[in-house]
Nucleic acid binder design. Structure first.
Length: 719
DNA sequence: ATTTGTTCTTGTCGG
DNA sequence: AAGAACAAAT
C-alpha cells in the first residue's frame, strides 16, 4: 500500500487503527483520502474482513466514492464494507429486524412533506387550528423530542405549564401511533428505532456490535444525539471508533446536529487520540486566509492553524450589481472569461444561500447558452405527477400506507372526497385490518355514497391489478400498468396545456430512469426502488454525471465538494446571513460557518457578488451588503465594479450606527407604515433607490404627501 | 351533504 | 407552484 502520498499527520491517522481516534480535519485537508486509506490499510495489511468495517458518511455519494476507490485496491471485496449514511445503514438493519419492534420489513419511510401532512391531519382531528399551533413548529418539536430520545410514553403532560406544550405532546403521541399503524417511519425513527431495537433485543445488538470491529464516522460535527448513542452502543464492543470532522463546518444544528459530539469526543471515548490535519491541499493562500479571517469572528471555537503551501493566487473578486439580473450577467461574463482562460464549465459552481435564488441564474444561463445543472432544489421527485405515481407504488407495497392512499384514492377524480376517506380510515380501526382490507370491506357494504362506492371499486381494481403485475414483473411494468389503468397520461394529454405537456415529459423521464436502473441491476425491486428514493440526498444527483456543465446548488449542498472557481452570490443582509438572524441573533455563528464552508469550496478563484436591489415576493427590495463583508480584510479583495464598492461597506457601517435599534434601508418598501421624527405617522407610497440613499414618497396622516430621504430622516417602522 | 372548481396566500437550509 | 380557504355545483 502506498503511504508516500500522505503527510505525517495523515499517515498517523491511517495507521492508528486500534482504540478511539478523533481526526480534526480542516477544510481541504484530505480527510476523505485518510478515511479511504485507513480502510484500505485495515483490509489489505491487517486482514480485516470488509463486512466488519462500518463507515458512516454524510451522503450516499460519499459512500459510493469510497467504495469505488477501494475497489481499485481491494477488488470486489470493497462492496462488502458497510458504508452509507446513518439513515441508509439503519434502514438496512431495520429491514432485517423490523418484526422485533412491531413493524414489518416493508415499512415505508416518510419524508418531510409526508410528516407535515400527517401532522396537519392529526391537528384537524383534534380541532387544533393552524393559528394555535404552527404545524411546522410541531414537526420540529416532534423531531426534537425524538432526537432527545424522549418517547411519547416518557411524556407526562402534567409537567407542562403551557397549553401549547400539552397540545404538542398530544399531537406527538397520536403522530407516533399513526406512524406505527401505517407501518411507516420518519427519518428520525430510522435511528431512534434502531436504538430501540438494540436496547430491547440484546442479541441483535450483540450481533452487530460484534460484527463491526472498526467504526468510522465522517462529518462528525453534524451528527446528533441519537447518532451518538447509536455509535456508542456499537463501539462498546471493540472500542475501535474513528471520527472525522471540523467544528467550523457544523451547519446543520437546525436539524438536530450537536457540536458537543465532536467537542466531547475525548471525554466520551476513553483513551482517545486526537490528530489535527491542518495542511490544506485545496485552496490558494488568498482564499484560505479569507476563510480564516472570517471564521475567527466566531466565539466558542478552538483555534486552528489551517495553512497551505500553494501560492497567493488571485484576489477574491467582489462585485456589487445593480440588481439580480446584472448579478447573473456578471457571473455569465466571468464564466465566459474563465472559459477563454482554459477552464471547463464543470470547474465552476454557483453557490447560493436559498434555492429561490437559483431561478435567476437558470434563466440567464439558458439565454446565454451556458450549460448548467442544478443540484437539489425543487426536486424532480417532488413534482406532483411523480409524487402521485410514487404514491401508487407505495400503496402497492404497503397496504397500510394511509398517506399514500389518501393522496391517490381520488386521483383521477372518482368521487371519493375527504369525508369518505375519513370513514374509510375509521373502518380500518373498527375492523382492525389494513387500510387496503378496509377499502375492500367498504366496497361490499353500504358505507359510502353511490358515486364514491363505484369509484372505490374502480380504485381497488387498479391496486389489485398493480399488485398482481408486481408479483412477477419489473418496476417499470408496474408503473406502466398504473399509468394506463388510471389513464394518467391520457388525462394530461387531453388538457393540451404546456404545463400538462411538461408533466407528461416528466412521467416519461421517470419511466426511462427506472428502465435504466433495471438494465443495470437485474435484482432491482420495487422495494429497493422506493427505499433508494426516500434515502437519496441532493448530492447523489451528481453521481455518474459527466456533462461539462456549471453546477448550481445551495451552500449546504456544496458541503464536502470542491471547485476550481466558485461564485458566492446574493451576499446580502436578509439573504446571507438569512433574515432569520433578526429574530434569533444566536444564529449568526452558524451562518458564518456556512460562509466558511462556502469560501473553502474554492480551489483557485472565488467571486462574491451582491445585488443592491432584487425582486422578492413581487416587490423590489433593496438590500445592504452582507455584514460579513466587513469581516473581510480589503487586502484579499479586488473590487470589480464601477459602482460603489468601498462606499457600500462604509454605508453599511453608517446604517448600522444610525439605525442600531431601527431598521435598515431595505425595509422601506411601498405600503410600509412608518413614523417620522417631525411629520408623524405615514405610509410609504413609492420608493426610489438612489446611489447611496433611498428616497421615499410618503403619505403622512397629518402633513400630506412628502418626499424624504431615508438617510436624512429619523424613521421608524410602525408594525 | 359532499365533492369540485376558483381565488388567495405563502416562501431557509435537507437525510 | 402548491396547498388552504372559500364558493359553487351535484
Amino acid at each position: 500500500m502506498d503511504l508516500a502520498m500522505l503527510n505525517d499527520r495523515q499517515r498517523e491517522a491511517v495507521l492508528h487503527t486500534e482504540g478511539a481516534l478523533l481526526v480534526m480535519a480542516g477544510a481541504g485537508s484530505g480527510k476523505t483520502r485518510v478515511l479511504t486509506k485507513r480502510i484500505e490499510n485495515l483490509i489489505v495489511n491487517k486482514g480485516v474482513m470488509p463486512y466488519r468495517i462500518l463507515a458512516l458518511t454524510f451522503t450516499n455519494k460519499a459512500a459510493n466514492e469510497m467504495k469505488d476507490r477501494l475497489r481499485q485496491t481491494c477488488g470486489d471485496k470493497a462492496d462488502m464494507i458497510y458504508a452509507g449514511t446513518f439513515h441508509s445503514i439503519c434502514s438496512k438493519i431495520m429491514r432485517v429486524n423490523a418484526e422485533r419492534i412491531g413493524y414489518t420489513s416493508n415499512f415505508v419511510i416518510y419524508d418531510s412533506s409526508d410528516q407535515l401532512s400527517l401532522i396537519k391531519s392529526i391537528m384537524k382531528d383534534f380541532g387544533i387550528s393552524d393559528k394555535t399551533l404552527n404545524p411546522k413548529k410541531v414537526k420540529s418539536d416532534i423531531s426534537n423530542f425524538k432526537n432527545a430520545l424522549t418517547m411519547p410514553s416518557d411524556i407526562d403532560e402534567e409537567n407542562f405549564a403551557l397549553d401549547e406544550e400539552v397540545l404538542v405532546a398530544k399531537v406527538y403521541k397520536m403522530y407516533d401511533k399513526k406512524l406505527k399503524d401505517y407501518n411507516a417511519m420518519d427519518f428520525d425513527d430510522l435511528i431512534v428505532n434502531t436504538i430501540k431495537l438494540f436496547k430491547e433485543h440484546s442479541d441483535v445488538l450483540d450481533k452487530y456490535g460484534n460484527q463491526f470491529r472498526y467504526i468510522h464516522v465522517d462529518e462528525y460535527q453534524d451528527t446528533n444525539m441519537t447518532q451518538y448513542v447509536l455509535i456508542s452502543l456499537l463501539a462498546s464492543y471493540h472500542q475501535n471508533i474513528c471520527v472525522v470532522g471540523d467544528q467550523d463546518q457544523s451547519i446543520y444544528s437546525w436539524r438536530g446536529a450537536d457540536v458537543r459530539n465532536i467537542r466531547d469526543f475525548e471525554k466520551d471515548f476513553k483513551g482517545a487520540k486526537t490528530i489535527l490535519l491542518e495542511q490544506n491541499y485545496r485552496s490558494t493562500k488568498n482564499i484560505l486566509s479569507l476563510a480564516n479571517e472570517v471564521i475567527k469572528n466566531n466565539g466558542d471555537r478552538i483555534e486552528k492553524n489551517l495553512w497551505t503551501a500553494y501560492d497567493d493566487g488571485k484576489k477574491i473578486a467582489y462585485y456589487c450589481a445593480e440588481n439580480e439580473t446584472a448579478e447573473a450577467q456578471f457571473v455569465i461574463n466571468a464564466i465566459r472569461s474563465a472559459k477563454d482562460r482554459g477552464f471547463s464549465y464543470s470547474d465552476i459552481a454557483v453557490l447560493y444561500r436559498t434555492n429561490a435564488q437559483s431561478f435567476e441564474f437558470e434563466t440567464a444561463f439558458k439565454r446565454a447558452y451556458i450549460p448548467h445543472k442544478m443540484v437539489g432544489g425543487l426536486k424532480f421527485y417532488d413534482r406532483k405527477e411523480i409524487k402521485d405515481l410514487h404514491s401508487y407504488l407505495r400503496a402497492v407495497v404497503n397496504d397500510d400506507d394511509v398517506l399514500a392512499y389518501q393522496r391517490i384514492i381520488n386521483k383521477p377524480i372518482r368521487g371519493i372526497g375527504a369525508k369518505s376517506v375519513e370513514k374509510l380510515e375509521n373502518l380500518k380501526y373498527l375492523e382492525n385490518v389494513t387500510f387496503f382490507e378496509a377499502l375492500k370491506i367498504a366496497s361490499q357494504k353500504e358505507i359510502l355514497s353511490g358515486k364514491a362506492k363505484k369509484g372505490l371499486a374502480d380504485f381497488i381494481k387498479i391496486i389489485e391489478g398493480a399488485k398482481k403485475v408486481a408479483k412477477s414483473n419489473q418496476v417499470s411494468k408496474v408503473l406502466e400498468y398504473i399509468i394506463s389503468a388510471t389513464k394518467y397520461r391520457d388525462e394530461l394529454k387531453a388538457e393540451e396545456t404546456h404545463e400538462a405537456k411538461v408533466r407528461i415529459e416528466n412521467i416519461d423521464e421517470l419511466l426511462s430512469q427506472i428502465m435504466n436502473r433495471e438494465s443495470l441491476d437485474e435484482n432491482f425491486t420495487l422495494e429497493n426502488y422506493l427505499e433508494d428514493l426516500s434515502l437519496a440526498s441532493d448530492q447523489d444527483q451528481l453521481d455518474g454525471i459527466d456533462d461539462d456543465a456549471v453546477l448550481m446548488m445551495t451552500l449546504h449542498t456544496a458541503k464536502g465538494l470542491e471547485f476550481k472557481l466558485v461564485f458566492l452570490v446574493g451576499f446580502e443582509e436578509n439573504i446571507f446571513p438569512s433574515a432569520y438572524v433578526k429574530e434569533d441573533p444566536s444564529l449568526i455563528d452558524e451562518e458564518r460557518r456556512l460562509l466558511y464552508v462556502g469560501i473553502t469550496r474554492a480551489m483557485q478563484e472565488l467571486y462574491i457578488t451582491h445585488a443592491e436591489q432584487r425582486f422578492k415576493f413581487g416587490k423590489i427590495k433593496a438590500n445592504n451588503p452582507s455584514r460579513f463583508l466587513d469581516e473581510m480584510p480589503d487586502k484579499y479583495l479586488e473590487c470589480l465594479t464601477n459602482r460603489r464598492f468601498f462606499s457600500s461597506k462604509i454605508k453599511a457601517k453608517k446604517d448600522a450606527e444610525k439605525f442600531t435599534s431601527a431598521d435598515s434601508f431595505d425595509d422601506y418598501s411601498s405600503g410600509t407604515k412608518i413614523k417620522h421624527e417631525y411629520f408623524g405617522k405615514g405610509v410609504v407610497i413609492r420608493r426610489k433607490d438612489l446611489d447611496d440613499d433611498v428616497e421615499l414618497l410618503v403619505a403622512f396622516d397629518d402633513k400630506g404627501l412628502k418626499t424624504i430621504r431615508v438617510s436624512m430622516s429619523n424613521l421608524k417602522i410602525v408594525y
